[in-house]
């Protein structure tokens, strides 16, 4: 799997290259700013790009803007945006048109190598990976209006994992329950929130996020 990395902190960039190479990814390019990222994407057309939000020259949201451009110009390239803080506005901007092949994670998540690699693989193959923090923010925001309050604690956990972009099997593994139980929870959640049920993980994420006030 081919990866392009855009991260301005050299230490982090080198660490990521090492981690991903070790895990069998092919790192085509590791760059430090948005312009270099755009040309690296055009030159390599990777499966996925890891993009830091804050990069030179303004250190504000150039990474995010580059990510949105890349999603528009190269729909086949998965985009994993990662940052040291989460902004729900950024998440909704990223997910605005379609929730496929996109991720938004805190940089802290690289500490759990397996989870991080799993999220990256998901994004590369057209799936979604939203940071639990982002989902938490969105769910808190949607708490009052969206019927989230009527969910049981277990259902909330399942909803949160769904919104993060996990498949039923992934949710089952994370909560140490069987897939059948997960499916039952999912049906209940969609019924309580009044959403049409959906098989595709991506459509599910979008439905859930729309519902709780996100995209």
């Amino acid at each position: 799997m081919r990866v392009v990395i855009a991260e301005d902190a050299a230490m982090m960039r080198e660490g990521l290259v090492r981690l991903l190479t070790d895990r069998g990814f092919e790192v085509c390019a590791a760059v430090a700013d948005a312009d270099a990222l755009r040309s690296a994407i055009a030159a390599n057309v990777p499966n996925v790009a890891i993009i830091d939000i804050r990069m030179p020259p303004t250190h504000t949201d150039e990474g995010l803007r580059a990510a949105i451009d890349i999603r528009r110009d190269h729909p086949d390239v998965g985009v994993l945006v990662f940052s040291q803080y989460v902004e729900t506005r950024y998440a909704t901007r990223l997910l605005a048109d379609r929730p496929t092949g996109v991720g938004y994670l805190l940089k802290d998540r690289v500490a759990d190598v397996a989870d991080f690699v799993d999220a990256l693989t998901r994004v590369a193959s057209g799936g979604t990976a939203l940071d639990p923090e982002v989902v938490g923010h969105l769910m808190r925001a949607g708490q009052d209006t969206a019927g989230v309050a009527s969910l049981t604690p277990r259902e909330r956990e399942v909803l949160s994992l769904m919104a993060q972009g996990r498949s039923n099997a992934g949710i089952a593994a994370a909560l140490v329950i069987t897939s059948g139980v997960v499916e039952k929870h999912v049906v209940n959640i969609f019924a309580k929130l009044g959403l049409p049920s959906s098989d595709s993980d991506n459509r599910r994420v979008l439905a859930v996020l729309r519902h709780v006030g996100g995209a």
Binding site: M12, G15, D22, Q84, K107, D108, V110, A111, V113, F116
Partner: peptide, 9 residues
């Protein structure tokens, strides 16, 4: 963050 990543690896 880098430290956490290295420890994770």
């Amino acid at each position: 963050a880098t430290l956490a990543m290295n420890l994770g690896m």
